[in-house]
């Protein structure tokens, strides 16, 4: 891509990736969550691929790292679901405990991050999964198409 696109991508990508992580981390307070934030992060990766080419991005973001991150997120998610099995599958066992255990008062009360029980942890797990899954899909497809273009 041209120098203009690369310069703008360099400027925008940190903001996009940071916003994606913010949406994931604040999923239990503000609109959004693991899926949405992961999609934002993966769109940042897609911008990098469009601007700099899949081969250059692959030097920093290997396919096996992404699959490890995705499997780790999935295991964390299902592990948290099983951890509440003493009461029920997907039971929120961390409410009232020292970890993410504040119980907010009824009504709007912004800014209390230390709430939600297992919900923030599950947001992080799903965020890992979505970041790795969508980035792997975009990266692998871009790599395959760019290789095909070289062959022809």
């Amino acid at each position: 891509m041209s120098k203009i696109v690369r310069t703008v991508a360099k400027l925008l990508t940190p903001a996009i990736l940071l916003f994606g992580l913010y949406v994931i981390m604040h999923g239990h307070i503000t609109p959004g969550g693991g899926f949405q934030g992961g999609a934002v992060f993966a769109s940042g990766v897609a911008l990098l691929i469009v601007a700099f080419g899949a081969g250059r991005v692959e030097q920093f973001l290997k396919e096996h790292q992404l699959s490890m991150l995705e499997s780790g997120g999935g295991l964390l998610f299902i592990g948290l679901a099983f951890a509440g099995l003493a009461t029920a599958f997907f039971y929120n066992f961390l409410v009232g405990s020292p970890i993410f255990g504040h119980v907010p008062a009824f009504g709007p009360n912004p800014g209390d991050i230390w709430t939600g029980g297992t919900i923030p942890l599950m947001n992080v797990a799903v965020g890992m999964k979505v970041i790795a899954g969508l980035s792997a899909i975009v990266l692998v497809m871009a790599l395959a198409s760019s290789k095909q273009g070289e062959d022809e």
Binding site: H28, I29, P104, A105, D112, G117, I119, N123
Partner: peptide
């Protein structure tokens, strides 16, 4: 949802709990 799951975001409470 706020009392039972502790999450201020009711949508997240439904989706993840």
């Amino acid at each position: 949802s706020q009392q039972e799951t502790g999450a201020n975001n009711a949508v997240s409470a439904v989706v993840f709990d």
